[in-house]
Design a protein around this nucleic acid. Structure first.
Lengths: 221, 221, 221, 221
DNA sequence: TATGAATGAGGATTCATTCAT
DNA sequence: CATGAATGAATCCTCATTCAT
């Protein structure tokens, strides 16, 4: 991400605060994603960012605050990417499909962000639990809303809130897990992976084992 | 779990080695599950175990070895629980169903074990990556095998290995995520949660939104 | 040496790195010489140096690195003192004599340095063996070269390399041992001690017991 | 020394105290010589000795006591070997020669003993200083007495006590150093090494560089 | 503002030594 | 007598955090 980080030397140029902050957070995301929260040291982050440690503290507070800020930023960016990807005013399956595509697209292009969000964040029990639970909660709610909406358009008793939420949680987990799997098998294109998950959650194994497959609408007759 | 940890005082009673070892590992699982690998200190583990640190090292080796041993033990126990729960010689859906029931049953009754396995373990990059990847890999392979087997009994082109593996990874992730969700909503019975996941992965949303639901065989005509 | 080490309190004054480094190494040599490598603790060294342990590590690395650095510094200083003391272009006996004078002069004025070099260093088997063997080796080679040179100016079959080396080793050992003895009998002047060794190795007991004594050239007729 | 130490198992046979003690001290000398005082652990010593740690303590006290006892025993044995080797009623040079032969003979056949005495012992500042100083002092005195005796048989003013002692110290140091050198060049026979030292200290470099060599009496006309 | 210098606090690990069986 | 089990007390080392320039 920051190729060829030259050994910093001398005094850093004065930069507008916003730019500095971005610079620092990029470095932090890089380091956190590589080493995890605990193993990452403020020393390394400041080095990668090209500034001195006191600046780090002046700009972004303690290590925990910095981590939380990173999480928030990355999560927001990702959620926006997904939200932008979803095509509203389309039937539920198409909405889901576009959401999945956006998600895997984002992961593919922002590995570091994804790793910070998923791997590092989920394990740190303490002060991030809240932060993260909220982030993840947003994703789950998005999916749950979609499910509820889909149910309502049908003539079936709408699912209970708990049910929708739990199904959404499962779906989100499936996405996360599949994204991780994908990182270890990067040769497959994003679309293929997304379509697998789409088939799993929309058609179910029951159909899949019978050869019934879900296709994007453009390919449908 | 061990509320009111009394301050240990005096010399610990002499116990045969095997007993002490189990005692220590139970304590370790408890602490690791609460705090995560890094935040857990050998001091606290030894305190919870009711022994001195040197015993910890004498019996279980370094912190990393201890952690790995915990993971192995918990994973083995869980995998056995699931394997025992699966009813062989049944159609694929029933096998899957029984596996899911066993899984959620285990999680419900062994929260600490589950947390060590899922949350703590997934993030520690270092020497546990291998250990854990293998454990999770076993679970994924179990599911993948089931999928492949299901496909073969049908008259469809059997899924590629990659496809089966990725679907299995997704399913496992869904299970993990749902199990976590469940820990935050403990009022629901295990069976209900398991059945939700079963419906999701077997029927798919496509069916669910139309009111089609999967039922355990005993309820089928 | 530093009696009444006052309890350090408050923050140490800011000093340029080079100065601090010297200060620390002086302290380290002091402590190592008094206690030996193993018994010396980084805690005590940092206390004597008047700084906190983290500075110790920041500046000089691990305990082993610190020790090795001390050895190197002291050995270099001593070897330079000796090399500077030797008068080249003089007959072998005069060269030897000036070397011995320089050696005892150095030991007399740098007791701590000497003790680190001799007592502490020789026993630590581990990573210093190499370091030290090299240092001592240099001294031995210096003497051996002198011997070989002396032989060549005469009309005798020049000594084998092994022979020269072993004799040099013996001489160096005699010097070391005599220096140690001297530390316990500090009332004798350096010149007297040096002259005793000179007589021993140049004249030999055979002459000594007959009253034949070696004199510095200025006193010769 | 104790080849093929079998893993001890079960209860040690009851043995008379003296035998046990020897067994333990042999093990201790072995371990101390290999690892040095600090690095040697009571655990390893007890293992090598084939008994349990409490026995170690029961028989030989603390680690320091054990070490001191080892030193004493080895030193005594060595001193006896040398004393036995010296031929009394012979001229001083022959006495010295026989003493040197005995010394190098002992070192060659008891490397472990020698290493404990020389390398390990000299560096441990604390409680062994006394012990060791005394041992070494005995050797020095032996040599000093020889020198004084030699002087008296001549018609020269007998050397001062200090002078004799310092010369003896130098000679002992030369012997030690040469013995160490020999350990690193074991291909040379003991006699050759001894004779080198004899020539150095009896004839002196002054004679050696002129080709004058000391020969054992049997070869003299 | 920007930083080199400095530290308090804590964590893993080892060892000599001793009970209790 | 002989031992497996147990521990107090150190020791090395690291890191988040802050002062003083």
């Amino acid at each position: 991400m920051q190729p060829d980080q030259p050994v910093r030397t001398g005094r850093a140029k004065r930069l507008p605060r916003a730019v500095r902050e971005r610079q620092i957070m990029d470095a932090a995301v890089d380091v956190f994603s590589r080493l995890g929260f605990h193993a990452a040291s403020m020393d390394e982050i400041s080095e990668v960012a090209g500034i001195s440690k006191p600046m780090l503290y002046a700009y972004l507070g303690s290590k925990e605050e910095l981590f939380a800020t990173c999480i928030r930023r990355e999560a927001t960016v990702m959620m926006e990417a997904i939200a932008n990807g979803i095509e509203p005013d389309q039937p539920p399956d198409v909405q889901l499909w576009s959401g999945l595509r956006a998600f895997f697209g984002f992961v593919g292009e922002n590995r570091a962000s994804w790793q910070v969000l998923h791997r590092q964040a989920s394990s740190q029990g303490g002060p991030f639990a809240a932060e993260l639970a909220e982030m993840r909660g947003r994703a789950v709610n998005l999916v749950a809303a979609l499910l509820v909406h889909a149910t309502k358009t049908q003539d079936v008793p709408s699912a209970s809130e708990q049910e929708a939420e739990s199904l959404a949680a499962a779906l989100v987990g499936a996405g996360e897990s599949l994204a991780d799997w994908w990182l270890d098998h990067p040769d497959e294109p994003a679309g293929v992976v997304a379509s697998r998950l789409m088939n799993l959650v929309w058609m179910g194994f029951g159909d899949l084992v019978q050869g019934n497959i879900w296709h994007p609408p453009s390919k449908r007759p």
